[in-house]
Amino acid sequence: MLIEALFYVFGALLIAAALGVITARNPVYSALALVMCFISSAAIWLLLEAEFLAVVLVLVYVGAVMVLFLFVVMMLDVNLAELRQGFTRFAWLGWLTALAVIVEIVGVVWARGGLGIDAGRGATPTAPTYSNTLELGRVLYTRYAYPFELAAMLLLVAIVAAIALTMRRRAGLKQQDIRAQVAVRRADRLRIVKMDAEKRP
């Protein structure tokens, strides 16, 4: 009963936030609404006893990706009027994409005989000793070890590519060599001159 009520609360929040993402006039508000989306979906996953996924969703998307996203959105000088011009012009494309996604999801669920999903029942309760994190780790490191490591390699390649694409060295760029700065000794900079005191003329 309580869980159902919570589900509807978070579901409503999720829908409201998702609408906020596309209707907010300011891109910063959109990004923050997207954060709210992630948090409410994490809460729904928690209700489904998938605590590992829920926490990782918040950790990765809210904690890292969206911070970067906000960082960029705030830094960029987005021309709001220009953005709004496109809204009606490209709306049909948005509707089409949404429709395609819905058809795909429904199609998969329907074609595979509902995938054993019983919408009216909610999550199957697990034993109190059951640890979602432990089970996921066990599967990831045994049965799916190769796909898991392949995904990791893919990410590494992406990181290297991103850095290689954006890094550029201009010729004649003046930079501080911090190692040299730290290694400086007194003798390199300071010369103490011994001289006799002189009489004032």
Partner: peptide, 25 residues
Amino acid sequence: KADAGLLYLLSLTSMGVYGVIVAGW
């Protein structure tokens, strides 16, 4: 006694930055 307590903490400490960013903006 959450089993994913450590992850929960990591995700919460990473959320603290929003207060700062939102305030600044």
